[in-house]
Amino acid sequence: MRLSDYLRDRAAAYVIGAVSWLMVVIFLNAFHAGIQAIIIVTVILLIALILSEALSFTKKRRFYNSLEASLEGLDKKYLIAEMLEEPDFKEGKILCDTIHETDKAMLEHINEYKSANEQFREFIEMWVHEVKLPVASLQLMCHNDGNSRYSSQLHRIDDYIENVLYYARSGSAEKDYVIRETSLKRVFADTAVRCREELQERGVSISTEGLDTRIMTDSKWLSYIFGQLISNSMKYFSPDREPEISVKAEVTPDMTVVRFRDNGIGIPESDLPYIFEKSFTGQNGRTHSKSTGMGLYIIKKLCGKLGHGITAESVQDSYTEIIITFGKNDLLKMS
C-alpha cells in the first residue's frame, strides 16, 4: 500500500475537512476573532488531522503489505488464511474473518469431492476384484473344455479391466505400491507369458539382453507397464517387416536403464514430445488403429509415482524405443 493510494482513498474526507475548516474560518471571522486565533485553530486542526491519518495509514500499511507479501510468497494461495495476523482495526478484522470463513467453506467443499472420489476409487477396486472372478472361472472353463476360442477374448477383457484399475491407481494420492528388489527377468517373462497367444499369432519374435538383474520397483505395476508397451507395439507393427520386440537392460553405477524397442512404424518427430500427454492420439492414432491416448499417459503417471524415469525415442518407419530408468536406492531394499 502506497501513500498516494491511501490519500486518494481518503480524498472525500479531506474535501469535507477542508470545507469544514473554511466554514470555521468564516464563522471566526464573523465574530472578529482576529488572525491569530484563526491560525492557532488551523494549526491545531492540521496537526490533529496529520497525526490521526499517519496512525491509520501505518496500521493499514503494515497489515496490507504483509498480506500482499505473504500472498506473493505462497505456492498454494489458499493457505493465506494460515499466514494472516489478526489486525487491530475493524476493516482488517472483517477481511480476516471473511478469508477464514471462505477458506473453511472451500475446504469442506473439497473434502466432499475428495471423499466422493476416494469412495469411487474404492468401489472401482472392489468391482475389479469382483469381475475378475467370473473371468477366472470362464478361463478355467475354456481350458477344461479344451476350447481355446474364447480365451483370447477373455484376455482382452482382462486387459481392459486392468486399464481401469491402474488408471484409478495412477490418479490416487494413496500409496498403494511397494518398492522392493525385483527380478527384471521374472517380471518380463510373466508379462510375456500373459501376452503369449497374441504375440505368437502375430509372429512377433522377442529377444532379451541383460535382463538378469535386480531392480527396485513394484513388480505388479511394472508388469502392467510392460503389458501396455507390448500391446502398443502390437498396434503399430509395420506390414513390411517381420515384427520384432527387443528388451535390453544396461546397468550403470547409479541406475538401470531398460530399453523396450520395436521395429514398428515409429512415431513422427512432431508427435514425439506429446505422446505421454493425456488423450493425445497423434498421426498414428488417426491413421492406424483405435487409440485412446490413455495408455502411455497412465504409464507415465505410474512411473512418476514409482520414481522411474520414462522417455521415448523413435525414427519414423524404423523403430520406437521406450526407455525406463530405475534408480538404485539401497535404503529402499526390503529383505
Partner: peptide, 10 residues
C-alpha cells in the same frame, strides 16, 4: 487372489 497389489503378495 484377485487382489493384484504387491502389498498383498508381500
Amino acid at each position: 487372489t484377485s487382489r493384484t497389489s504387491e502389498i498383498d503378495e508381500v
